[in-house]
Write a protein that binds this DNA or RNA. Structure first.
Length: 566
DNA sequence: TTTAGGG
DNA sequence: CCCTAAA
């Protein structure tokens, strides 16, 4: 009948392989590249460890070194009195009473930048925070005292924006260390504030002295790294992973930032706690919004268990889903795999990702902000994400939101806080929302180390696909297929005419048809891009009209035969 | 997963 | 192209 006639009318040649598996949409592939994490060294860690060991032997010290039980918050404390208290995470293996210093679990990643030298047992470090010209000076003076070495630490940090005293960290200017710096630095971070306090060589105290101590330390470090590497193998338990990454995190920096936060605004402060064994990995509440703005932006700070705090600025009109994705993107790059972000507002889980933040109650002018919790939830379906992604890269590589939707998207690490505050203080147009913290992860499975390229790949996957305008021949094939199959069978169209075009999904074809119809309806002057032959557009119009009528009739007369029979 | 539509 | 509600 009609349909038959239609087929006749639009009968065209089609590929014979019209039968194809339903799932033609190919996932974007990922390239892989190995990246070594074992090229990190840090002399200061060694120093600290040396001190620790020596102190443990002597029991005499001016620098208190405690060993809490894998405390996250308790890693290092800074007093306001120019004294430094260091706390080290617990080692997996008990420290051996060795005469040689052990490398402490911070390993190289703790302070990846800066230079120090060991000169006759004296270490001098000047660190620049890169934060409003803050500078930190740390003078460690090991001395022999009855067979015990005492490290006398004095640290101070001064700056216009903060007078907080913090210990500076980091030495070891090895290549690997510098690479780490880059890894954690934003490219546009002129001040090289890379998630750590980055000590640097003081101009007034040039280091041209032999580095016997350094060399020794590095050697030990290297061996330790080797050991550590073996432990990073598959057999490594999650706990090990957890601890390892806890160590890897620039603890000093984090503390530093907390301190800064406190000094800048107590509203930023967040408390975290560990919920080992709990399913919802962690949540953390913060007090209410700090700033209220007029441009309907909500700025969130998310404090992760392992990474410096993140800032998320996102329009209220953005969806919860995009917020979640942003958070997930940022966090997942630092985590292993298999997690997704959950969001709770005032204790209620927000499941509808399509809601806007404003609808959800996440807005600058309500009180829900004090009960905004993010959580990490194991997700079996979640794609494998990076186990460790430099935060700075997260900042740049988070274009998962439509540009049109996201006028401003920030995910900032805390080192930017000061600058940020300064910027916003001027126009006072932003809301700062303390966000929840991700304190602990529940690893569904051992983490996988992701490569640099995977990082880039993730970046790419977060982006919109490359634009690939349809060629005339593609349009021709599409028109042909639609003429034959109709406008409601895009999967068939795909398999009929675009079976081998992996980059053309049936959604793409449907969209293209949509635009073709539109193009055909508008005047040629209004058309853009490669001109489609008018002949093809006419066919588009024809087929569109025809199949539209078909659909209409199908809806109007679902059962014409039965009607006739009646 | 596919379809249908809005963004 | 993306995102999603529905089917």
């Amino acid at each position: 009948m009609v349909s038959h006639k239609c087929v006749e009318e639009f009968s065209l040649q089609f590929p014979a392989n019209a039968r194809a598996p339903r799932s033609s949409r190919k996932r974007r592939s990922f390239k892989k590249e190995e990246i070594s994490e074992n090229d990190k060294t840090c002399a200061i860690d060694l120093l600290a460890t040396v001190a620790e060991n020596l102190l443990s032997e002597s029991g005499s010290s001016h620098m208190a070194i405690d060993k809490p039980v894998n405390g996250v918050e308790d890693r290092c404390l800074v007093t306001q009195k120019h004294s430094v208290k260091e706390e080290f995470p617990v080692e997996d293996e008990p420290l051996k009473p060795a005469t040689l210093p052990h490398v402490n679990p911070y390993q190289g990643s703790l302070s990846p930048c800066g230079v120090s030298s060991v000169i006759n047992g004296k270490v001098e470090i000047e660190a620049e925070g890169g934060f409003d010209s803050c500078q930190a000076d740390l003078d460690l003076k090991p001395s022999i005292d009855g067979g015990a070495v005492v490290l006398d630490g004095v640290a101070s940090l001064g700056g216009s924006s903060s007078r907080t005293k913090v210990p500076s960290m980091g030495t070891g200017a090895s290549r690997g260390a510098l690479e780490d710096v880059n890894l954690f630095s934003r490219d546009d971070d002129d001040e090289n504030f890379s998630g750590y306090i980055c000590p640097r060589v003081t101009k007034k105290s040039p280091r041209s002295v032999p580095r016997i101590g350094d060399r020794r330390i590095r050697k030990i470090l290297a061996s330790r790294h080797w050991k550590g590497g073996s432990r990073h193998s598959e057999a490594k338990s999650w706990r090990n992973y957890y601890l390892h990454h806890q160590r890897s995190y620039p603890i000093k920096k984090r503390k530093y930032f907390e301190h800064i936060s406190d000094s800048v605004s107590d509203d930023y402060r967040l408390r975290s706690k560990m919920h080992r064994g709990s399913r919802a990995i962690s949540t953390m509440k913060g007090p209410g919004a700090s700033f209220v703005s007029s441009d309907s932006h909500v700025r969130l700070r998310i404090k992760s268990f392992r990474v410096p705090e993140l800032f998320v600025e996102i329009p209220e009109t953005a969806t919860v889903g995009s917020l979640k994705r942003m958070v997930m993107e940022a966090v997942s790059t630092l985590l292993s795999d298999g997690h997704r972000v959950g969001l709770m507002v005032q204790g209620k889980k927000v499941r509808d990702d399509s809601k806007t933040l404003h609808q959800t109650g996440i807005s600058q002018d309500n009180t829900h902000l004090d009960s905004l919790d993010f959580s990490l939830e194991p997700s079996s379906e979640a794609p494998h994400l990076l186990s460790s992604n430099p935060l700075g890269h997260v900042c740049e590589e988070l274009p998962m939101c439509h540009a049109s939707d996201m006028d401003t998207v920030f995910i900032k690490s805390e080192q930017d806080l000061a600058l940020f505050d300064k910027e916003t203080a001027a126009d006072d147009a932003k809301a700062l929302v303390p966000a929840a913290a991700l304190t602990e992860l529940l690893p569904p499975q051992p983490p996988r180390h992701k490569s640099k390229q995977q990082l880039q790949q993730q970046h790419q996957t977060a982006q919109r696909r490359m634009r690939r305008p349809f060629s005339v021949s593609e349009v021709e094939a599409l028109v042909q297929a639609v003429e034959k199959l109709g406008t409601g069978r895009w999967r068939d169209v795909k398999h009929s005419a675009f079976e081998d075009a992996d980059h053309r999904t049936y959604v793409d074809l449907k969209d293209k048809w949509k635009t073709l119809v539109h193009t055909a309806k508008i005047s040629p002057q209004q058309r853009r891009g490669e001109p489609v032959p008018q002949e093809l557009l006419n066919r588009v119009l024809n087929a569109h009209g025809y199949w539209s009528k078909q659909h209409m009739e199908t809806l109007a007369l679902p059962k014409p035969e039965s009607v006739l029979l009646l």
